[in-house]
Write a protein that binds this DNA or RNA. Structure first.
Lengths: 142, 142
DNA sequence: TATTGTTATACTCTATAACTATA
DNA sequence: TATAGTTATAGAGTATAACAATA
């Protein structure tokens, strides 16, 4: 492979990765919109199988803690989550309300139904894709 | 596969896709920064092997035309590109300057050198990944 | 009338810095 | 002193709407 080929392959893979991720984002946003919530709020809500400290939410989503504050506000305003206090009184636990838990479950179903990758590839291919992406992500995290 | 499994697989693939794309974006941004240009400007510059109408740039990058105006301004201010007029006098052709062409080539090399995916996977795996992503993207574009 | 490009504006996502309360 | 969360603010990336020039 000449260096020009390597450059073109890198460019091609980067573009494909970007497009595939954009499609997944669009699928996600469309599903979230059907429940009247913004994508970031949907991402947080999907984490709330159990009450979770704000700090942990930030770590899980790889975002800054200050950002989670605003998203949690939205979820509270929408009546989908509430903040409680932990034994360590600095910690706030965000939990899904009854209605939030309901939306969370229906949202999860809607997303997997809409998710293009699940329809375009068969079982073996999806597994292969997952394996390759894992390698990429792990190597990127060093 | 139960529906719960399907949901979890979709979630897992979406997360992986997002993480892999984020890594590629970071690689790209880091390389662009070394040349003192913002990622969107770098994306446009990489297109300018030949003079290209603003309209076509927008179509290629899947962004709005109004957005390209601002990016082209940045490239002009940096002395990396210039606007010319086509035979159709509505059309403006953006072309790389001499210095722009130089940066474009070195940027392409830097990106492929930095691109994590090229190091984490071997030839066959990269080809496989490209194939799978193409299927995804095509099916998403309907 | 349709198309190219531009301007002004606004929105979404996200981070940084400074701060409060608690440990 | 260190950690959890919040506030205020700012910046990047991108779109929408209205518009001028040209076709």
């Amino acid at each position: 492979m000449t260096s020009v080929d390597a450059i073109n392959e890198a460019r091609g893979l980067a573009v494909l990765l970007h497009r595939a991720a954009a499609l997944a984002r669009e699928d996600f946003a469309r599903a979230a919109e059907r429940f009247g919530i913004a994508p970031p709020a949907a991402r947080v809500l999907l984490l709330l199988d159990d009450p979770m400290p704000m700090r942990k939410i930030a770590d899980r989503l790889l975002v800054d803690a200050s950002y989670v504050t605003g998203v949690a506000d939205q979820l509270e305003e929408a009546g989908l989550a509430t903040r409680g206090v932990g034994e360590d009184r600095r910690v706030k636990l965000l939990s899904a309300t009854e209605s939030g838990a309901d939306v969370r479950e229906r949202l999860a179903v809607a997303i997997s139904a809409d998710f293009t990758a699940l329809h375009a590839l068969d079982d073996a291919e999806r597994a292969q894709l997952a394996t390759l992406l894992e390698r990429l992500v792990e190597s990127g995290a060093r």
